[in-house]
Design a protein around this nucleic acid. Structure first.
Lengths: 216, 216
DNA sequence: GCCCCGAGGATAGTTGTACTATCCGATGTT
DNA sequence: AACATCGGATAGTACAACTATCCTCGGGGC
């Protein structure tokens, strides 16, 4: 298919597609002749993934490239997808440094009966708990355990959902969108809890209409 | 104090301070004469709040302005702080539209024995649950309840922590940073749970070293 | 009284990200 | 053969958050 067609089926402007090509997010189509190139279904899936990660998850192009790079040029097997999931996580979480295992993290892993391995995610949790502690935002064990329980269920559901995807692209998108949406959900549930606690303590708070939200 | 002093105590460049002044995030200092202006402790606190929301929470200047606007020119009372908390939430959560109450949200509120009021946070949760459902990311009641339990504890701790703050600026920063850090924590716990589930199903996954993270 | 250094305000420039518009030569179509 | 079109390259735009430069004026040392 030509670039124009690719543009139509994906709802992306030809200019944007060219931009992604220049950025190396999309492989160039196989050139038929100096003025015509052929794009495949793979390009369509790729492009859909890029747009999904951009608009739904709000990911930057550099992050998208890292994920795309990790998913390119390899056969699509179960172990490969696991590695991919780890990459997606490390990009979403901006993992880079490691941290010493913490007692709290240890307690969490034991309480949830998770196989205690030395994953990046594990050290990310440990590191973050240390950061929160340093910021004076303590995390009580029961809170951590509640998160753990929720996360445990989500992880099962997410893995099941991702297993249903038959293309790598859908696999990645499902994983990333799932993480993103759950993240947003927690924010909102916490906000609701705070609002409810506030009411208990002080009675109903008037909406902040004076200078609050609601402007364009 | 002069602008240069304000710059020093806050660790912000004079140019940036001038920029914030132009943007209306900081009130102008009281002009002593056409070439000298006086800044107060209030300016210091404001500036610290701005920098904290920018660097720690990663908030945009427009969002910061909304919060600042809501906290300006009013006496600092308990009910006022509640309204402020609601504003901070609505900015952090990008609340704007409302949604019909959902059965799942109802169940959550009842399970947690939260005073079921018609807050923005409540409709945000309901709306988001609808969005997740539409995206094919179901949220099981037990997951929602686990989030609820964690959120309940956090809300108590956060409210207690914010009550300790004696300036409005610290109040806001504590609230915003708390929400932000908890949000990050959940992401990481979910990632850890996913990693653990993956291991259970497929055995240890090799780290995605091939094209994975670790680059600058 | 005079000079000059620094303060503060205004204006314009920079960086980074994500596109978007224009130009151009080749080429398939009529 | 005329001509619209395709795809690649280059340059421009929009927005955010700063940053650098200029300009003028006033207070303090001499």
């Amino acid at each position: 298919m030509r670039l124009a067609e690719l543009s139509e089926v994906s709802g992306t402007s030809p200019a944007s597609i060219k931009f992604y090509l220049r950025a190396g997010l999309l492989q160039p189509g196989t050139p038929i002749n100096p003025t015509r190139a052929d794009y495949t279904e793979e390009h369509v899936r790729r492009l859909r993934l890029i747009r999904g990660l951009r608009s739904t998850v709000g990911m930057g192009l550099e992050d998208i490239r890292r994920i795309l790079d990790a998913s390119t040029g390899v056969e699509d097997s179960a172990p490969r997808r696991l590695a991919l999931l780890a990459t997606v996580q490390s990009v979403v979480l901006r993992l880079d440094g490691a941290a010493a295992a913490s007692a709290a993290g240890d307690a969490l892993v034991r309480a949830m009966a998770w196989p205690d391995e030395d994953s990046e995610a594990r050290s990310a949790v440990d590191h973050h708990l240390a950061v929160m502690d340093a910021a004076g935002v303590g995390v009580r064990p029961d809170v951590l355990e509640a998160y753990g329980r929720a996360a445990d269920t989500i992880a099962g559901a997410q893995l099941a959902a991702t297993e249903l995807q038959d293309t790598v692209e859908d696999f990645i998108l499902t994983a990333a969108v799932g993480m993103h949406l759950h993240n947003q959900l927690v924010l909102k549930v916490v906000a609701l809890a705070q609002a409810s606690h506030s009411i208990r303590r002080y009675g109903a708070a008037g909406p902040p209409d004076a200078t609050g939200p609601g402007r364009p």
